[in-house]
Design a protein around this nucleic acid. Structure first.
Lengths: 242, 242
DNA sequence: TCAAGTATACTTGTATACAAGTATTATAAT
DNA sequence: ATTATAATACTTGTATACAAGTATACTTGA
């Protein structure tokens, strides 16, 4: 039934994952992009037929998406919740919360290796922009923050990250795909913010860190120019995929 | 193979849940209590035979426990990680983090209904103690905090709660089962702290809230008297079950 | 005795089968 | 025409079957 053979989620990022993970990644992109509309009902049999797999991995995928609050498992089918403006704000609440927590820990330890690692990632981001590779840029952006969080070796903070990461990654991916064509200049600012962030970690400057973190959120959310990247805008990222 | 027919997790709390959830709840208790030791390898077939169910719900359970970082899914079997002292501290980091966040929101809204609800729960806790019902007490204790968190209607904060709650619930359950016999007087202090917490919410007193929250953690963790409720101590809770 | 290679008995991941329950639709009676 | 009832088609939850891969143990050779 799925007449569109192209996938929204970069297939090369799925090297080692199971069928269930792949389906979850793809469904997540379709839900967040709006290709699958909020309120729609997904049934296991239909999805299994669409993806050409059995119900086992589909069930796995639905469990994952339910944990991410993108769908709601009901007696008859899974109802799509989707990602609202409120959700995105809430995700950033959580990110601000955990990255602030992490920063307090970073202040107490040696961050030399971390700064080196982050500088490397930042350079990768620059290359990605140079070649207009929104996907690679998004990957590195997410990795940037993950690297910071992993440094403090806190399994429950990491758990929170693991739970929010997939949705955030998908959102950033769609957002960047749109903007790399329409608002290329945005990326300059994003890079500056990341440089600021590294500087904050290097100098253990709390205010600077909070400032860059907030600016980064505003950037990703597009608050600088628009209030909110609408579902319609996000869905543009769908077409750019190849 | 499981010669012990008794369950650690209260069966009446599982009214509506699926087999997978039941298995997860029971395995969680066995892991946290130390009945299943850290480092042990669990295989799906063995667990299926032990619980007398098929592999499907077992797989479901293992996925849940892996998300809670209690086990690590590997190519051949699931390796039990267990709950270390560090983990418990980290859980409380997260609780402190989210409950502080929640409190900031509570300050801005009308908390009259919440205070009423919390008072009710507190009275339930008192009754539970009166009848030496550690399980009911634990249930209400967890519900107390969940009620506070749900008030602000923040789906991602709630997500964090949903992810940490099961482990915390199991830990509190085992801790309370032990202490209701050995340290009955502890419960007086726990009640006082909860009263303080309600007072803090009522008067929107941030310092009081932080104070009671910290004291509550110390109480549950047993830091007032012991540094840490050892695995050995926790396992006593195993025997008290009936 | 030891080493190399092979057979065997597990392991998970996915597909399929079955069972119990729910919504819908069709049918029949008033 | 409408309402009650019954048949049907579809849903999830669980059990089982199969396939691909891995570790263990054994056999065979020196």
């Amino acid at each position: 039934m799925n007449e569109n053979n192209e996938f929204l989620y970069p297939q090369k990022w799925l090297s080692k994952s199971s069928t269930g993970d792949r389906v979850a990644s793809e469904l997540r992109m379709q839900i967040i992009s709006g290709k699958i509309e909020s309120g729609a009902t997904l049934t296991e049999n239909k999805l299994a037929a669409d993806f050409g797999v059995s119900r086992s991995p589909i069930r796995e995928a639905l469990k994952i998406l339910a944990a991410e609050n993108l769908i709601r498992l009901e007696r008859m089918g899974a109802v799509v919740i989707g990602l609202t403006e409120k959700d995105v704000e809430e995700i950033y609440d959580v990110r601000l919360l955990i990255e602030s927590f992490v920063f307090e820990r970073l202040i107490k330890i040696d961050t030399k290796n971390l700064v080196t690692e982050l500088s490397k990632i930042l350079e990768m981001m620059k290359i990605a922009i140079k070649y207009m590779d929104a996907d690679e840029f998004s990957l590195q952006d997410v990795l940037f923050h993950e690297t910071i969080i992993r440094t403090i070796d806190h399994s429950y903070i990491k758990m929170i990250w693991d739970n929010t990461k997939p949705v955030m990654e998908a959102f950033i991916l769609l957002s960047m795909r749109t903007r790399i064509n329409e608002k290329y200049e945005d990326f300059e600012r994003i890079l500056e913010n990341h440089e600021l962030y590294i500087e904050a970690i290097k100098t253990k400057n709390r205010e600077l860190m909070i400032k860059s973190l907030h600016q980064n959120f505003d950037d990703v959310q597009g608050k600088v120019d628009d209030l909110w990247i609408s579902q319609q805008t996000l869905s543009k990222g769908v077409e750019k995929n190849e």
